[in-house]
């Protein structure tokens, strides 16, 4: 469930062991750096993703004592740290823009190498999604990519966002509405009920 076979220690065990032997935390890095990096890269591009992903694991290491050992999965905790860093990164971007260090407007956010704002780096259907994602707000985009990049259920996504499952469900519903609207009227997409069933089906799978 968390990327470990029966013969390997669970992430939870690794975290516990790293309290006495910090080097053990490298196992968590090896298991999850790629997925955290990819999640971030899709939102802020390669350069910022490198920094934010590295910082995610540095923060996680420093905060590893605060991980609730009763949790089965460390990924919601890790992605929660990544999302906080992402928010702070964006706020810093806004501040820099306000200070005139960036020439950009909300409609033309010049985030370097940002895949969702630079359709030149992606093509076809993916480009269409990228363009639609670029037009929705940052929090909604992050939630959609969190759910899409991982197999998190509502409770796990809620843990990452530090909000209640009910609030997460409402926020996800809203994000999907926004994205659907941006994807346009030509929509051949299914209705909300079947979409929700897909998520719940995966959620049930994850909870096994």
């Amino acid at each position: 469930m968390i990327g470990a076979t029966d013969r390997e220690p669970s992430d939870r065990d690794v975290l516990r062991a790293s309290l006495k032997d910090p080097a053990r935390f490298g196992i968590v890095f090896d298991r999850h750096f790629r997925s955290v990096y990819r999640f971030l890269e899709r939102q802020v591009g390669a350069t910022a993703a490198e920094d934010l992903a590295a910082e995610t694991f540095t923060v996680a290491f420093a905060q590893r004592r605060t991980f609730d050992a009763r949790r089965r999965d460390v990924r919601p905790w890790l992605f929660g740290i990544a999302i906080n860093l992402l928010r702070n990164h964006r706020r810093a971007e806004v501040t820099r823009r306000d200070l005139g260090l960036r020439q950009a407007t909300p409609e033309h956010r010049a985030i370097d190498e940002d895949p969702v704002h630079d359709s030149a780096v992606v093509t076809g259907e993916v480009a269409r999604v990228a363009k639609a994602l670029a037009r929705i707000d940052d929090e909604s985009r992050a939630l959609l990519l969190l759910v899409a990049s991982t197999d998190f259920n509502i409770e796990q996504a809620a843990e990452s966002l530090h909000i209640s499952p009910a609030a997460t469900r409402t926020r996800l519903w809203r994000a999907r509405q926004q994205l659907r609207a941006e994807l346009g009227a030509s929509n051949r997409y299914t209705d909300e009920s079947s979409s929700a069933r897909d998520i719940r089906g995966e959620a049930s799978k994850e909870e096994q």
């Binding site: 750096f33 790629r34 990096y37 990819r38 999640f39 890269e41 899709r42 390669a46 993703a49 490198e50 992903a53 895949p115 992606v122 259907e125 993916v126 269409r128 999604v129 990228a130 994602l133 959609l144 990519l145 759910v147 899409a148 990049s149 999907r176 994205l179 659907r180 994807l183 051949r188 997409y189 299914t190 079947s194 979409s195 897909d198 998520i199």
Partner: peptide, 22 residues
């Protein structure tokens, strides 16, 4: 059927692996 979340999944999966130097 494909829905908007499937499309986001494709976009997410289209992202690059981190290079070795990263």
């Amino acid at each position: 059927r494909t829905d908007e979340l499937d499309l986001v999944r494709r976009f997410a999966q289209d992202g690059p692996e981190p290079p070795a130097d990263v």
